[in-house]
Design a protein around this nucleic acid. Structure first.
Lengths: 149, 149
DNA sequence: CTATATGTTACACAAACTGTAACATATAAA
DNA sequence: TTTATATGTTACAGTTTGTGTAACATATAG
C-alpha cells in the first residue's frame, strides 16, 4: 500500500521541520536531508498546510514551518490529510454489485468488519503525537555519543 | 489490497460448503453458485486444505468438503492460509536501506507500529468463527420469509 | 481405461504506484 | 518593475502489482 510511504515520508519531513523550528525550510533543503524527492515533498506538505500543520511562504527565503507544537500534532490527522483512500478501504464495495444474496451478505459483513478495524487504527493513531515520535526515535536511534560506532 | 478479495472469496466458498455439508462440491459447482472463477477457487481451497479447513477428493464425484465444524474455524487461520504477505506488511522494510540516521529511525518506528496493528487485527479475527459469520449474514440478508419482498 | 476432479503454472490485460520533470503562480527583495 | 526563488499542480514514462483466464499435469473412482 501507499499509505505507508506517504505517512512515513510526511513524518520524516515533519521531524526535520520540528528540529529546525522556526526557520523556514525549502522543499529542496528537506529533500537534501531526508533523501525524499522534492516534488513529492511539496505535494505532501501542501496537503499538510491545508489542515494547518505547516505554514508555507513562497518567494525567496520562503519554505515550510511547523505551525504547531509537536505535542499538538497527532498521527491520525497527518494520515487523513495525506491519504485520501483509507488503508483498509479494501475494495469490497466494488464487488457489491451483481452478487447473489449470500455473496452480497458476505460482502456487507466484511465491509463492516474492515470499517471497524479502520476506526480502531485511527483511534490508535490519534494518541500518537509528533512529540512522542520524536522522543521514541531519539531514544533508540544509533546516533553520536553512543558506544559502538 | 488483495487480502480483502481473497478473504471474502474464501469465506463465500466456505459458507457454501457449510450449507451443503457433507456433500463434496466441485470447484465448478461452487463457481456456479458464487460467481467466483473456478481456477481461483481451486487455488484458495487448496491452501485451505493444507491447514485442514477443507478436505479434498479427486476423481469423479469428488470435490471439497468442510473438514470441521463451522464453530471451530476462525477468520484468522483462513486469512493466514490464504494470504502470504500480511495486510499491514507495508513496505517500510524496503526503505530501511541507505537512509540517514533519523530517517531510518522513523522507518523502524512505523515498522513497529504497523506490526502492532497487524497483531491486533489478527487477534480480532481469531474471535470470529465461520459459524458466527453464517449467523450474521443470515440475520440481515434480504432472504425469503422476510417481510418486504 | 476413461471420465472427471484437483493442483499448479503461465500469461495477457488492466490498474496502481514511483520517481521525476515541467510549468504556472506567487512573493520577497533589489 | 524586474528578478530570483519558492510553492502548487499536472503530466508522464517505467515499473510493479493484481486480475481473470486458460492450459496442463496429476490423481482417482468406477
Amino acid at each position: 500500500m501507499s499509505a505507508s510511504t506517504k505517512l512515513s515520508n510526511s513524518t520524516k519531513a515533519l521531524c526535520f521541520l520540528a528540529t529546525n523550528r522556526p526557520d523556514p525550510q525549502s522543499s529542496a533543503t528537506i529533500s537534501r536531508h531526508t533523501g525524499i524527492n522534492a516534488s513529492k515533498l511539496r505535494r505532501l506538505l501542501s496537503d499538510l498546510a491545508k489542515i494547518d500543520v505547516v505554514t508555507t511562504s513562497k518567494g525567496a527565503a520562503g519554505g515550510y514551518i511547523l505551525a504547531r507544537d509537536p505535542a499538538d500534532i497527532h498521527l491520525q490527522e497527518i494520515y487523513c490529510a495525506v491519504e485520501d483512500r483509507k488503508a483498509f478501504h479494501l475494495d469490497v464495495a466494488a464487488l457489491a454489485n451483481g452478487e447473489t444474496g449470500e455473496g452480497a451478505a458476505v460482502n456487507r459483513y466484511f465491509l463492516e468488519l474492515f470499517a471497524e478495524i479502520q476506526v480502531e487504527i485511527e483511534e490508535k493513531m490519534r494518541h500518537l503525537t509528533l512529540a512522542s515520535i520524536l522522543e521514541s526515535i531519539s531514544a533508540d536511534a544509533p546516533s553520536p555519543s553512543l558506544p559502538g560506532a
